[in-house]
Design a protein around this nucleic acid. Sequence first.
DNA 1: CTGTTAGCGCGTTCAA
DNA 2: TTGAACGCGCTAACAG
Lengths: 355, 355
Amino acid sequence: MPAPHDPQSARAARDARDRLPRDAHRGQPTLRDVAERAGVSAMTASRVLRDDPQVLPATRARVRAAADALGYRPNEVARSLRLGRGTGLVGLVVTNLANPFYSRLALGVDSVVGEHGLKTVIGNTGQDLEAERELLADLVARRVDGIIAVPAGADQRHLAAAVADGVPVVLASRPPEGFAADCVLVDDFGGAHAATARLLERGHHRIGFLGSPPAVHTGTERLRGYAAALAEAGFALDTHLVRQGQTEPRQATRAAAELLALPTPPTALFCSNNRNTIGAFRALREAGGADVALAGFDDFELADALGLPLTLVAYDTDELGRAAGRLLADRLHDRAAPTGPREIVVPTHLVEYGM
Amino acid sequence: MPAPHDPQSARAARDARDRLPRDAHRGQPTLRDVAERAGVSAMTASRVLRDDPQVLPATRARVRAAADALGYRPNEVARSLRLGRGTGLVGLVVTNLANPFYSRLALGVDSVVGEHGLKTVIGNTGQDLEAERELLADLVARRVDGIIAVPAGADQRHLAAAVADGVPVVLASRPPEGFAADCVLVDDFGGAHAATARLLERGHHRIGFLGSPPAVHTGTERLRGYAAALAEAGFALDTHLVRQGQTEPRQATRAAAELLALPTPPTALFCSNNRNTIGAFRALREAGGADVALAGFDDFELADALGLPLTLVAYDTDELGRAAGRLLADRLHDRAAPTGPREIVVPTHLVEYGM
DNA sequence: CTGTTAGCGCGTTCAA
DNA sequence: TTGAACGCGCTAACAG
């Protein structure tokens, strides 16, 4: 039995739309208009426009002419309803499109689903869990064919609800918690481990960690990778050097500055995502010639131009989106023969800049 | 009479979707299911779920309970069809979501239209004019309520066709050509003029120009601003110093390198967008200590971190998207009382980095 | 206050 | 080869 939803907020969103003018008949020609002009029944017109071969070439031509003259376009809304299929739409749920990570992801998703004749509906939640809940309910109500999501927090019950409603969900960059769904992950642990190990090789062992809030899966996995590398080298994790919770560069700059101001400051920093790396970079620059090594997860444009050595964990962000799109497309075609949930892990590699 | 469309490609896209499984009844509960469970007619259930006051509290409660138990969500597809209104979707047509300019624009658009209960469908055309034509036809067929577009080229007949079909179109960053539509522009001329004047003030007069293809409105406007500033200072435009056509940083790097290799190279470069500025930056860096001043249109993240003086024409990209969203939302509400096309110009200002 | 009828635009089914 | 009836899920307009 599907969980009851919150009807308040979802209805509020609908109401806003319902206030649009009632008269909205835009005079787009319908199948009947085409049929009349061609002197045939709507049914025949429908057949012609769907390339049904069972039509006399002569009538076919007449219908085509009529359709072109009228500028007819089939109403996809009516088609969706009639065919009982979905809408040909895929919902994409992200927290912040302004972050290049998410826009690349969106690009990858859209390119793949586009090849399957699907379009992408974006939903930007701005880290707001409540907004995310409403968004998901709305996407389900709109009968999207599937949803690709990067949930903002650890609570994924709204995603589970969508799955229970029969909507295929693919998670990107986070694993499903408490329900079955396909997902595409980045090798968070491995990448963070490798970057930290690289810093250790260079003789650092007081390595600070800057990361996203603990509720974010990538953040904690990358923290685990960092901690594991330290442990393997025989160094205990010093919680004074760990700062989680930064979502924006500005916050990261502040957190990094605090670490640098410690009595025994770290000699290197590892940042769990591009926002934190950029923030830490600014802190280092403000600190003047602080001789602190910098490493981070996520490659980004102009990383090579910052004028300081930088070790980054790189991976193919577009591919992350494309893989998610492929998983979803597979589900849509194979609904009859469902396989178990699939998990794809995108590999990472280290890149060195400015050396 | 609307122009006849190309039925081939549009149909091809539909066909891909039509190959999805036929059985797709996802068993989502319908209004009738709710009504039956509550022991009322579908009509009464409908009324309750739309907060129609004309219902006995007791029945209202029964219906609510039934809906919750079933996890009922109104089918927005059916609602759209029945109400003859749009779909609550806005089409956003851009060339490259990976360019921060477009992702910020998308964010701005989505935030505003979201407040009106609308969702954004993205269409990334990758500079492909043919893809853009198909995309527009598809959006119209899907009965989006409106379209916000940054057309890739000078040919806007497909946009005019959408307008002729009664779909409100708002252009962002380009003016309409040959038809009436609202638009939001950046002060291209003024910004380019100001940046070039700044370079002239500093004693430069051999100033190279790097820009997008001539078909792109912003590129030519910004070229005009650059040329005007030169002319006002008494310098003729030297076409050897003008390189148009670069879309990606890599191309811009090459073009910049060519300018720098001229017998009498420019002493400064003005770039008409962020892609060209970043490309030119790399060329300067590769050229070693080349003492060439750099200016460009568009602010971008890390522009302050490049370690060289940089003059940028900045403006509020999010606001560009938000303004476009507002224009569209206004149209949707005011369809009854149409005003003439509106044009909004977003102002620019100069920022100096690395000095 | 509640139910019936009808139809949005299209496509499946069956009959002609 | 073509057409008429019916229904997808929902709601406006009118009963009762």
